[in-house]
């Protein structure tokens, strides 16, 4: 079965909530309108279409667009050797969606990472804790409003953080037509 046929099957099963598959660089993406249904869709994909391997699960911060979060599922079938990408959108007020750990157990750590880095909750996750940062760290670093340099925090006996100086090197580049002083902001030492 080709990836297109598999995508069509998902689409015909969930007519009301799925978009037409979008193709870009030979990869198919299906948008799912209702985030609450994601675990149902995933369960269907695994049980009926043999998508037995969850390659990756990650989230995107859409910055000032609404809805703010997009959660991306890359799934793969060892039977058909085909990839498929599922995307759901979650609003900032809501910031939660059902877990897929009951479909693929590998989702456990991926979802913990999304929770840690972006602050999106997964309902029904068996063990939703921070994974890369420590328990008690007050921010979600991959959000677009969080600066690369970081913010101060302090937890005695656990860890502390300080904002990082960005002087002395192009550690940040934002391309565009502006001159290099604007494109590569560096905290300069007072002269």
């Amino acid at each position: 079965m080709t990836a297109k046929q598999l995508a069509k099957k998902i689409q015909s099963q969930f007519k009301e909530i799925t978009s037409d598959p979008v193709e870009f660089r030979d990869e198919l993406t299906i948008d799912i309108a209702d985030a609450k249904q994601i675990s149902v869709v995933c369960h269907f994909a695994k049980e009926h279409l043999d998508f037995d391997y969850l390659v990756d699960l990650c989230s995107i911060d859409n910055d000032d667009e609404t809805p703010r979060w997009t959660v991306v599922y890359h799934i793969y079938s060892y039977k058909h050797f085909k990839h498929l990408r599922l995307k759901v959108h979650v609003s900032e007020e809501d910031s939660k969606l059902p877990t897929v750990t009951n479909v693929w157990r590998t989702a456990n750590w991926h979802e913990r990472e999304v929770f840690d880095m972006m602050g999106i909750d997964f309902i029904g996750h068996p063990d939703l804790r921070r994974i890369l940062m420590w328990e008690g760290y007050p921010y979600h670093p991959l959000r677009k409003d969080f600066p690369l340099a970081g913010k101060s925090s302090d937890m005695p006996d656990v860890a502390f953080t300080d904002p990082v100086p960005l002087e002395g090197g192009p550690f940040v580049t934002s391309p565009g037509n502006k001159d290099s002083a604007d494109r590569e902001p560096r905290v300069r030492n007072p002269e």
Binding site: Y139, F146, L148, V164, G169
Partner: peptide, 10 residues
Amino acid sequence: GMYRSYATLQ
């Protein structure tokens, strides 16, 4: 070093 980021001790 090259890791000027929120997570790295300078």
